[in-house]
């Protein structure tokens, strides 16, 4: 296994009086796509938000590339090379697609070659370049949200349920885009409920339940073990095919 770019050590997160993450430990190997699975309310989104600094961990360490980023502010973490695609997509509806991309490209105007690469997977973004993002369909908004995260090379991309409510044709494009990102050695931590999608892309898998990690494995091993899927996730891959 490659060395980890991200390591969570005994991370606890409280939201108000609620104790959501209760000692989360796992690693994300460099250059791999790790899938974070779990039932609704298991703490997957809170884990991503804690890594991103949107919730501060009350205990434990979040180590990114050898540095503890646990208490840092979100802009520092983002500038350190982590991109975030939230579940709600977080697009700026009153801004055009172009303006959304300009903001995502922190280091200046978006690189044209990089844009062409993005357009090859998500051609709708080129078509609607000057349109206010609020007028895009749900799938197109998701494309824009992912495109923003990859408009400049990042060392780690956190993606929260990108396939939720999205048409199969767009999901196929997402799969191709993520496979291409993996070939460029980008590390991805993906929260996903669609096990078929996750199993096609994932190198490693981490399963959460009740704010704790309950299983770590290679994705191929979990995909080939219907009994484990049923035990851990209440489903089997066969049920999704």
């Amino acid at each position: 296994m490659a060395d980890p770019i991200l390591r969570l050590e005994g991370v606890h997160t409280h939201i108000g009086q609620y104790h959501i993450l209760q000692g989360v430990d796992f690693e994300v190997p460099r250059g791999e796509l790790t899938v974070l699975l779990g039932r609704n309310g298991a703490g997957k989104t809170t884990t991503l938000r804690t890594i991103m600094g949107l919730w501060k961990p009350s205990r434990g360490r979040v180590v990114f590339d050898g540095q503890d980023i646990g208490g840092r502010d979100t802009p520092d973490i983002a500038q350190g090379g982590i991109a975030y695609v939230p579940e709600a997509m977080g697009i700026f509806a009153d801004l055009t697609v172009r303006e959304n991309m300009i903001l995502a490209a922190r280091d200046g105007a978006p690189d044209q070659a990089r844009l062409d690469w993005i357009f090859s997977f998500f051609p709708a973004l080129k078509k609607f370049w000057s349109l206010a993002a609020g007028h895009l369909s749900g799938g197109q908004k998701q494309m824009l949200s992912i495109a923003r995260a990859v408009v400049e090379p990042r060392r780690l991309i956190l993606i929260d349920e990108p396939t939720k409510g999205i048409a199969p044709a767009i999901i196929e494009n997402m799969i191709r885009a993520f496979q291409d990102l993996k070939r460029s050695d980008t590390t991805i931590l993906l929260v996903e409920q669609n096990f078929r999608f996750a199993s096609m892309l994932g190198d490693g898998v981490v399963v959460m339940d009740d704010g704790r990690i309950v299983h770590r494995d290679r994705m191929a091993a979990l995909a080939g073990d219907p009994a484990a899927q049923t035990r851990l996730l209440g489903l089997s891959l066969d049920a999704h095919q």
Binding site: D73, G90, L103, R106
Partner: peptide, 13 residues
Amino acid sequence: VENGEMVEALGYR
């Protein structure tokens, strides 16, 4: 004005 949290997640203070 729309989503301050996302502006921070893009790396702006």
